[in-house]
Amino acid sequence: MIQVEGLTKYYGNFKAIDSLSFYIDAGEVVGFLGPNGAGKTTTMRILTGFMPPNEGTATIAGYDVLDQPLEARQRVGYLPESVPLYKEMTVWQYVDYVAKLYNMRNPIRANRVDEVLDQVGMIDRADSLISSLSKGMRQRVGLAQALVHEPDVLVLDEPTIGLDPGQVREFRELIQQVGKEHTVLLSTHILSEVEQVCDRVLIIHNGQIVAEDRPDALSARLQGSHRFKVKVGNAKPEAIAEVIGGLPGVINVTSTDDGVEVLSEEEQDTRPAVAAAIVGKKWDLLELRPLDMSLEEIFLELTTNDRQTYEEEG
């Protein structure tokens, strides 16, 4: 459904994306995971026909975004990071205008606008001015305009950014629901978002794809038990470090303000041994929790891992 080959884009001398290639099948929900400035938005803007690439090709449903721009754009629904809204219009007028731009004709169009507003839960605000809507509602209207012409491909750029936790949860549910019927490419820098909604994840860093995996496989790789935090009620960190540090599989123990951080060998779960040792000393084990990696650590991890594998294979 989406085919990208050797895509390269420069901003001046800066290479935003560097010969990117990937393929997305019809019906897949794919997450684009990467920190800010990794090239996610640039790639999406090329796919949606916003800007042309310097090198490489991208096709949507068989239409090249450069050679057949109107046909390609017709098949994409796009929700940019900042939702492109005309605040002086009502919700209904706005979605209807976008539907017109995407060549929908009445009477189908009017029905479809109602239908899509119902789907995103905005039908009861159809006659409200967009300027009066909250951020979460604006995001829903943004999704409605991306969906209204029933595109083959839905491209969502950081769809949950700036929403409050309740709105994030609702919006993710909405994306999951939409993902059942559409091919979706969404970008995010939140790992748990990818786990929740995506079938597959592409990890992009410095304009290159550094890893590609199923989200559960990825999180197993990343959130292994090899780094966790221990908080103990009635012992000094130095004493704890002394006890745990000698256990098999433990590489390093560092003291923090309210406990210790334990780093253990990757393939080995040392948590039961650590817990047993603390309880054996009759200390109160208050907390034992895996530490989530920051996105930067994830990339470090993935890129170094890939290099190792590569060297081993080579």
Binding site: F50, L70, E71, R73, Q74, P80, S82, K87, L101
Partner: peptide, 14 residues
């Protein structure tokens, strides 16, 4: 200013 050019740039209009 409002980013609505992004809508026009990606819609099937020239």
């Amino acid at each position: 200013r409002n980013g609505t050019n992004e809508l026009l740039y990606t819609a099937p209009v020239r």
